[in-house]
Design a protein around this nucleic acid. Structure first.
Lengths: 194, 194
DNA sequence: GTCTATACACAGATAGAC
DNA sequence: GTCTATCTGTGTATAGAC
């Protein structure tokens, strides 16, 4: 019989990620995790000696996850538009009604207070997204799939900015469009011709 | 002779705003302000009994500032495109190379950890921006100034999202386009026709 | 108004028993 | 591995002298 119980290590990472996605890196504490998992803070230090260690491992896992998603999409037979749709879908599954937004967005806003190792990991994650977006837009522009400027590098920055900002805006001001709706409008802008 | 010395009250607000724009609401402390102004933390409590009081006053002042800018732009004889340009310019003057980004963006990312009074003030600020953008886009669409969808409410959310996200992206990943450049691409997208 | 002194809670982190 | 116990620093905040 398969052991379905998650390891303490994994429980800590999952709980920490959820807390950062809600409160931010500087606002969550080891005590928060300990309380939620009914363990002691010293047990967390056993797995993650410092808070930076924990944050760093979280970002690395997070990057691997998106990396795998992007590779799977690239290996598929999907068209450029469908690839972009899948990309948006990946972020929409991260965004949660309980206030969770993209881990990397939260760390980006705390970026100045983070140790260099985490800063580098955040940069890597963002660059990974930018490169994939530029490549995918480039590919789509060639076969006329996208209503988009030829400078795909610039377009990628614009696209990612919109995605990042829409999570913050939708959470902070429920009267604006929802994150899902903004994603839809964004997608339409790139696929519908006048 | 005019007394050019700023009041302690104002010094505290200016320093606190700068610190939040860099580090975020939860990462800055009264001790940070005290150190920078060479005063004691108890002096800060004299003007702002609690950290929430300070944050709230800052957001109120910040909102008034943008409100005045928007009113001045509205009272001018500028066309819709120039109005949008002025709007972007206002945010570009906030963004600073030393890591400062929009106060409201920083508070938006910490939104869940803030007391309700500040949350409301953040919402007000965002809604003020959305309403002005929707109105201005609406006005421009009528005279064919903007290359933009008829649903100006949705377009406003999209536009503001891009602005918010580009500050975070540009600061966290210097390899992406700069905030200024993203603003330019954004403006072009709305004003240039294919 | 600004200071000294201090209270109190909580943060991240470590040593060592079990 | 997980715990108890503890250390040390820092956080917000207050009382009261000057």
């Amino acid at each position: 019989m398969m052991n379905t119980k998650k390891s303490t290590h994994q429980n800590i990472m999952d709980t920490a990620q959820k807390l950062i996605q809600r409160k931010g890196f500087n606002a969550f504490s080891y005590a928060d995790i300990a309380k939620e998992l009914d363990i002691k803070t010293s047990s967390i230090h056993y797995y993650f000696p410092s808070k930076t260690d924990l944050g760093l491992e979280l970002m690395k896992r997070y990057r691997k996850t998106i990396q795998e998603v992007l590779e799977q999409v690239d290996q598929s037979e999907l068209g450029s538009r469908e690839k972009l749709q899948e990309y948006l879908q990946a972020y929409q599954s991260i965004f949660s009604e309980d206030g969770r937004i993209c881990l990397c967005v939260m760390l980006s806003s705390d970026i100045i207070t983070l140790e260099d190792s985490i800063q580098q990991e955040v940069k890597l994650f963002l660059q990974l997204n930018l490169d994939w977006l530029a490549k995918t837009l480039e590919e789509g522009v060639k076969c006329n799939a996208f209503n988009c400027h030829a400078d795909t590098h610039a377009e990628a920055s614009l696209f990612l900015s919109t995605l990042i900002g829409s999570m913050l805006l939708a959470r902070a001001n429920p009267k604006s469009l929802s994150f899902h709706q903004i994603g839809q409008v964004l997608y339409d802008k790139y696929t519908l011709h006048d």
